[in-house]
Design a protein around this nucleic acid. Structure first.
Lengths: 344, 344
DNA sequence: CCTGGAATAGAAAGCGCTTTCAGAAAGCGC
DNA sequence: GCGCTTTCTGAAAGCGCTTTCTATTCCAGG
C-alpha cells in the first residue's frame, strides 16, 4: 500500500542498468540507442508501469500539448458545438483539449485562466460573450497579457472586443437585421423580443440589429416589447410566460438565442397557443436540436463548428503583425415552420 | 517582444531584495514575514505580473487541485448534465474540473488518462459505457492501475464493471423492464427497439431488461425487431427511417437513449406519421430537452446530475476497504405524451 | 551587561526530468 | 598500428519552486 510513491525515470534507469540520460532518450526517441540497451529500458519501463511526470518534463523544457478551452457552460449546445470544432482542428494538430465551465462566474474564469497559464498551456481559448464588466475584463486582461507576452496564444469566440486578442466574431447585428427583414416580409409588424442579460454584448448587438432593421421599415420596438430574462431555456420559458400573461399583442417573438426560443416554444404550448398559428417564433444560432422541434425553428444559422475551428486555427497560426486579428463570420437566415405569414 | 521569457520567483525575490524562500512564503502565506518585506514582495510580484509555474510547484510538492473528467462527447446532453453534477461537487470542494472528449476513440481515451496521470491530477472520472473490448479495457487498466497505486482516485459512471474501480451504475435492466411493463399495460404487444452498438454494455443491459419484461408477459422480441444504429440523434433518425421503410408493424418503439429517440421522432414526423397516434415512442435517460419536444417523450428518468455528484463524492471519499465501491442508481418511468394506449 | 530562547530570514537541497558536454568506443584511411 | 572522425553513453547542470535546516536578530529575564 505504497502511498504516493511514483516510479521515476531513475528507477527505470536503475532497473535497466543504464543512466537516466539513456533511459530518457529511449523513452522519448530523442536519440539513437544501442539495441540491447533500448530493449532493457523499454522492458523495465513496462514492468514498472512507469509514467513520466509531466511536471518534471515541462520544467525541463519539454512541452505537453494540451490547450485549454473556457466557456460558460459546456452543457449549452451552443458551446458544445463550437467546442467540437475546436477539438477537430486540435486533434488534427496532435493537441489534446481540455474544457472548463465557468458558469459565468468571473472568479472561476480567472482561476481557470490562471491555472492554464501556470501550467504553461500552449493556448487558451475563451468562448462566449463576456459581460461588459470593467473589473472582470481587467482582471482577465491582467492574466492574459503576461501570458501572451510569455509566448502563450489566446483566441476568443464571440466576446467583446475590449479584450485585445485574436477573435472570431459572429455578425450578430447583421444577422439579426436580416432576420428582422425576413419577418417583416412575412407581414409581421408587432414584435416582442426575449432578451438575455442586456449587459452581454451578444445580446445587445442582436437586439440593436433587430431594432435597426425594424426602424428601417418604420416599425417601432419599444422597451416594453423587450423582456430581459435568463440566458437559458428556463429563462426563455419564464420570459415567454410573462409576456403571454400580460396580454402580448405581438405576432412574432424573437428570442436572442435558440436555447431561449426552445423555452419560449414550450411556454406557448403549455399556454395552449399554436406556433406559428397564433404567434411566430424565431431564434438565433441554429443549434442542431432546433430541427427536431415541432415546429422546427426559424433562426439565424451560425456556422458554429466553424467558429471553433477558426478560433483554434487563429491560435495555432502565429500572429506576425502587431494588431490582433479578427475573423468575422456571417449568419444566414433559415426560415422553418415556426414562423408564418401574417393573415391579412 | 521577449519570447517565452517568464517571470520567475527569483525575479520577484531579486526585485524585492529578499531571498526566494521569503518570496515563496509571502506568496503562499506559508509563514509569517516582516511587514515591510511582505509588502516589497507583493509589490514586486504585482509589478512584474508574476505567475507561479505550476509545474515547478507541483514538482516541489505543492499540488494543484484539478480533476479530470473524460467522456465520449461533451456535446451529448447526457454527459453534459452528468458533468454539471460533477462540477457542482468539485466546486464545493475547491477543485477545478477539466473535461475531455474521446469521441469513442480508445487511443484518445488512453492518451487523456495518461496525460492526467502524468500531471498527477488528484482524481480522474470516466463517464460513459465502454465497449466490451478486451484490448481497450486492458490498456486502460494498465494506466489506471499504477495511477491508483500512486495515490490517484478514480471513479466511473455507467461503465462496465470489468474495470475494478469505484463506480456509479444506473439500473439499466430494471429501468428498461419497468418501462416495458408500463408500455405493456398500455396495451402494446408489438415492439421495435432502436439499439445503439450492442457491444456497449449500457445498450445490452437496456435491451436485456426490456426483453425480459416482455417475455414475462409472453410477448416476444425477436432480433428482427431490434435495429442496431448509431448511438446518436442521427443514428436514431436513420434507424427509425429504415424501420418505417421496411414496413414496421410495431405499435411502439423503444429507443435505448433519449438522444436516439429524438432522431426517431423527427424521422416519424418527416414520414408523416403521428406520435402517439400511429406509433408510440419511448426513450431512456430523461435528458432535459425531451420535455420540450412535441410530443414530450416518455422515458426512464435517471437522476443524471446526481450520477455525477455521486461519482465525484466517491472519488473524494477515500476507499478504506479493499473492494471497489458501487453505487447503484434507480431509474423512474415517466409517462409523457409520446406514448398512448393502443386502440382496441 | 550578559545569556537563553523565540522569531524570522537566508542558504541549500532536492522534486523528476531533459539536455548539453565531454569522454569512451568504434570505424576509417594511411 | 596510429591518428583521425564518427557514434553512442554517462555525468552533471539546471528548469522554478518548496522546505528543511541553519544563522541571525531581537527581546526578556537574570
Amino acid at each position: 500500500m505504497a502511498e504516493r510513491t511514483h516510479v521515476t525515470l531513475q528507477d527505470v534507469a536503475r532497473a535497466a542498468a543504464v543512466s537516466p540520460a539513456t533511459a530518457s532518450r529511449v523513452l522519448n526517441g530523442t536519440a539513437k540507442v544501442r539495441d540491447d540497451l533500448r530493449e532493457r529500458v523499454q522492458d523495465a519501463a513496462g514492468r514498472l508501469a512507469y509514467a513520466p511526470n509531466a511536471h518534471a518534463q515541462a520544467l525541463a523544457g519539454a512541452s505537453r500539448p494540451t490547450v485549454g478551452v473556457i466557456c460558460h457552460d459546456v452543457s449549452d449546445p451552443y458551446f458544445a458545438v463550437i467546442a467540437r470544432g475546436i477539438m477537430r482542428v486540435a486533434g488534427d494538430n496532435g493537441l489534446l483539449v481540455m474544457l472548463a465551465s465557468t458558469f459565468r462566474d468571473a472568479d472561476r474564469e480567472v482561476a481557470y485562466v490562471s491555472m492554464l497559464r501556470a501550467q504553461r498551456a500552449p493556448a487558451i481559448l475563451l468562448i462566449g460573450s463576456g459581460f461588459e464588466d470593467k473589473t472582470w475584463e481587467r482582471s482577465l486582461a491582467a492574466e492574459l497579457g503576461p501570458y501572451l507576452r510569455g509566448g502563450g496564444r489566446v483566441a476568443v469566440v464571440s466576446r467583446h472586443r475590449s479584450l485585445r486578442v485574436d477573435s472570431v466574431l459572429p455578425e450578430n447585428r447583421a444577422g439579426a437585421a436580416a432576420l428582422a427583414n425576413a419577418l417583416l416580409e412575412m407581414g409581421h409588424r408587432r414584435f416582442a423580443v426575449l432578451a438575455g442579460p442586456r449587459a452581454l454584448t451578444t445580446v445587445a448587438d442582436r437586439i440593436a440589429g433587430f431594432r435597426s432593421a425594424l426602424a428601417g421599415a418604420g416599425v417601432p420596438l419599444s422597451e416594453e416589447d423587450i423582456v430581459e430574462c435568463g440566458f437559458t431555456r428556463d429563462g426563455g420559458y419564464a420570459g415567454m410566460s410573462s409576456l403571454i400573461d400580460r396580454g402580448m399583442r405581438a405576432t412574432c417573438v424573437f428570442a436572442v438565442t435558440d436555447v431561449m426560443a426552445i423555452g419560449a416554444l414550450t411556454a406557448l404550448r403549455d399556454k395552449g397557443l399554436s406556433v406559428p398559428g397564433d404567434v411566430s417564433v424565431a431564434g438565433f444560432d441554429d443549434i442542431p436540436i432546433v430541427r427536431d422541434l415541432t415546429p422546427p425553428l426559424t433562426t439565424v444559422a451560425l456556422p458554429l463548428e466553424q467558429l471553433g475551428e477558426q478560433a483554434m486555427e487563429l491560435a495555432l497560426r502565429e500572429n506576425s503583425g502587431r494588431r490582433s486579428r479578427i475573423v468575422r463570420v456571417e449568419g444566414r437566415v433559415v426560415i422553418r415552420e415556426s414562423t408564418g405569414r401574417v393573415r391579412s
